[in-house]
Amino acid sequence: MNKRQKKIITIFSLVAVLCFSLFLILYALRDNVIFFYSPSEVKIKVSNDEITNGSLIRLGGLVLENSFQRGEGKNVSFIITDLKSEINISYSGILPDLFREGQGVIAEGNIEIIKLKNKNNVLKKQLKFYASNVLAKHDENYMPPEVSEALGLEY
């Protein structure tokens, strides 16, 4: 083996070891690398006690159609859904321009877990989310308004 081949092997093994270690790091941190949880994930984590009362989390999903309600002043409430489960959000502040029903949004804030006992004495957890910040996601589709109208998309 000459010097050049040795160099090539050294570089490739360096990159391979790096990739492997990076993969392990990102795999271990996979829960922290994601930016937000979906409502289903939050519900699973609440039932596993991974999310406790008052935890600061980010919750992402679609704004449920016909769920947006305006209260007094800047207070609004709406429901975030991932089409499997839903969580009620209350928020006081300015909403981004892209915020509308059916749009993907991310709410940042504290979750309140209310423990209720029903008639059969079974513990039930009810979730309420107090958002301190709401961000709008936009999707990867770009088109002029005429085209979206022709496709029958709501705008």
Binding site: L22, L26, R30, V33, I34, F35, F36, Y37, S38, G60, I106, L135, K137, H138, D139, E140, N141, Y142, M143, P144, V147
Partner: peptide, 30 residues
């Protein structure tokens, strides 16, 4: 990691519009 970050993890940034399998989800005029 940059390329696939938007596919593997949930991010605020939207997924790719052009460099993906299938037709680009961007109108030809754009």
């Amino acid at each position: 990691i940059i390329k696939f970050s938007v596919d593997y993890w949930s991010t605020l940034h939207q997924p790719a519009s052009i460099s993906k399998f299938g037709a680009p989800s961007i109108h030809i005029d754009m």
